[in-house]
């Protein structure tokens, strides 16, 4: 009699809906980066539309315009997705912690744009509140 095959795939096992979606993402310094608006999931064979019969891996957290498709339905072209690669994720608790700085990520481009074009240009915008 042989042991049943090990069905647990390597890596963190998560209920994506329960533990990831809509969680706050914090960077390595604890600064809020975004909320997990959606996930990019690949099957073990590398297909990007796993049908549920095979084990799937979360490859990226998505944020930005994909939020609209969560609310209203549909699927934006993948060229419009802003990804945080799963390799950047350090920990998953009540928040998702990253191991990198939020500033360097694609998803924070609106923050940088508003900072560089508007807020940073107003007097006192780059100083601590006194």
């Amino acid at each position: 009699m042989s042991l049943p095959p090990d069905e647990h795939p390597p890596g963190l096992v998560l209920d994506a809906r329960l533990h990831l979606l809509d969680r706050q993402v914090l960077d390595v310094d604890g600064v809020p980066v975004c909320t997990v608006d959606d996930l990019e999931v690949h099957g073990v064979d590398g297909s990007d539309l796993p049908d549920g019969t095979q084990t799937a891996f979360v490859t990226s957290l998505l944020s930005g315009a994909v939020l609209a498709t969560r609310v209203f339905g549909g699927r934006p072209p993948s060229s419009r997705w802003h990804r945080i690669r799963w390799t950047h994720v350090a920990d998953v608790g009540t928040t998702v912690a990253l191991g990198v700085r939020g500033d360097t990520l694609d998803v924070t481009w609106t923050e940088r744009w508003v900072r560089d074009r508007v807020i940073g240009r107003l007097p006192g915008g780059r100083h601590d509140p006194g």
């Binding site: 809020p32 980066v33 975004c34 900072r115 807020i119 006192g124 780059r126 601590d128 509140p129």
Partner: peptide, 11 residues
């Protein structure tokens, strides 16, 4: 999920 708070600099 934006960065917020008055304890941060506005920028």
């Amino acid at each position: 999920g934006w960065s917020w708070g008055k304890f941060r600099r506005p920028a």
